[in-house]
């Protein structure tokens, strides 16, 4: 009931009889034809439009996972707000982590237009039934990790997200436009942190290099499994949700990082990075996909810790949410009584 939305899902019919079943089949066919036309024209599907059940399901999964990633992704950085080494950095980091809460909110809203309440999504997350970007299951060990997360993790995220601004599902695309605008500072602040460290004392530079070494491979794996091991990609591309393949985006990202790491005066922990003149694509060394799957399956360094923290916040806040809801109900009752009396 909670997922009432401006751009809500279509009405569900009563259980159909035989004639109605025929009628429904006809409507389904009409809906499918319209949907196919929208895809062919690269136009947008809006929440109340007919859409194939699999399209809805895929979107719901992708958008909610994206939202969960923003919310869980707050934690490794939030842990450093209290220790940020300058007041300017503290303000920047606070604003960034706060933005991530906002981005989670925008995405949950987009997912809600598909008929799933945010509360249900949150329950699934806390129950360990939902996935989120596995990179946030790695620990942020030093201040330089704030730089590496901003530069590499947000950098990879932006590569993924910019094409999503054109996703065929309207609310998702619109959420991504807002998010991309706001995130433009996230990667830059990370880059600046690393640059300051790299130009700082030997200990600071070492800290920066160590962070880049630890976050590089997980960041590359954020683009998802290699194309030949990514069964859902093809369908998502046909639906104009995904615009570029995992490997394509990863290769572009590597190319950008190669340039930028030079400006930083640091190195990428990958001796096999090269530009393939034949394919005109950037290539990188092998990635440990076994580790990726392990972390995704819940066996990463911080999985339990991240979920526990989210659960704790949610549970600790229950009495507050209840209080505000109870107050609103009382006020509405008073308001109604007053109107009745008048």
């Amino acid at each position: 009931m909670a997922a009432q939305n401006l751009q809500s899902v279509p009405d569900q019919p009563a259980v159909p009889g035989r004639d109605e079943a025929d009628e429904q089949a006809r409507l389904e066919a009409e809906g499918q034809a319209y949907f196919d036309k929208v895809m062919a024209e690269d136009s947008r599907i809006e929440p109340k439009d007919w859409m194939p059940a699999a399209y809805r399901k895929t979107l719901l999964r992708q958008i909610s996972q994206h939202a969960h990633s923003e919310i869980i992704g707050m934690q490794p950085e939030a842990n450093w707000i209290s220790r940020a080494p300058s007041l300017k950095r503290k303000a920047i980091l606070m604003a960034k982590v706060q933005d991530e809460a906002g981005h989670g909110l925008y995405l949950y809203s987009a997912a809600e237009t598909l008929g799933q309440s945010r509360d249900k999504m949150m329950d699934d997350l806390i129950a360990g039934k939902a996935r989120y970007s596995s990179i946030f299951n790695y620990p942020a060990l030093t201040w330089a990790d704030m730089g590496a997360i901003g530069w590499l993790v947000d950098g990879a995220a932006i590569c993924n997200q910019v094409p999503l601004c054109r996703a065929s599902y309207g609310p998702y695309g619109r959420a991504m436009v807002r998010i991309c605008k706001e995130e433009s500072f996230h990667q830059r602040q990370g880059f600046e942190i690393l640059l300051e460290l790299s130009n700082g004392t030997p200990a600071q530079k070492q800290m920066a290099q160590d962070a880049v070494n630890r976050w590089y491979a997980p960041a590359l794996m954020m683009f998802g499994p290699p194309d030949d091991d990514s069964p859902n990609s093809k369908q998502s591309m046909a639906w104009n949700i995904k615009r570029f393949s995992n490997d394509e985006l990863r290769s572009r990202f590597v190319g950008m990082m190669v340039e930028q790491v030079r400006v930083l005066g640091l190195t990428l922990p990958d001796s096999e990075v090269r530009f393939n003149e034949e394919t005109k694509k950037w290539e990188h060394g092998p990635l440990d996909w076994e580790e990726f799957k392990e972390v995704l399956a819940g066996r990463g360094p911080c999985n339990a810790q991240r979920l526990e923290r989210r659960r704790e916040a949610h549970d600790d806040g229950a009495w507050v949410r209840e209080a505000a809801a109870a107050y609103a109900a009382k006020q509405a009752r008073k308001h109604a009584e007053k109107e009745f009396a008048a």
């Binding site: 919310i71 982590v97 916040a313 806040g317 507050v320």
Partner: peptide, 16 residues
């Protein structure tokens, strides 16, 4: 300290 621990996401943003 509240950012990421507030009673609801909207309040994470408000306290932030």
């Amino acid at each position: 300290h509240w950012i990421s621990r507030a009673p609801e996401l909207e309040e994470d943003v408000a306290l932030g």
